[in-house]
Amino acid sequence: MEFLLASAVGVMTAAGIFLILRRRTFPVILGLSLVTYAVNAFLFATGRLALNAPPVLNKYEDVAYTDPLPQALVLTAIVISFGMTAVIVMIALSAYLTTKNDHIDISVDKKTGEER
């Protein structure tokens, strides 16, 4: 279980960083999503991994429970990263539609120093 989760976080982060270093916006956005998935899984594990344990206290009997705080943090992180991904898709799309290319770099005119 620990090995599975740790390797999943590691592989997703590595793949995400590889994609972020590409030069077109589409793979970069895919890479960002992968990295945010990795961090969500990572946050989930910060409260220690527990199987079959609900994140609530039971006041009638003594049953195992798991730390509820990371689950709340993950929820917040998911919502924020989802919203941010939507924003970057929209900005990248409008940049693509206005410039007719989806390179992430801004090219600079060598003579005038003008950016385009």
Binding site: I20, T25, A95, I104
Partner: peptide, 16 residues
């Protein structure tokens, strides 16, 4: 807009 894409990417990575 292109500079905006770079800015958002960098900060999204920072947030992660």
């Amino acid at each position: 807009l292109k500079a905006g894409v770079q800015y958002v990417t960098y900060n999204l990575l920072g947030s992660t």
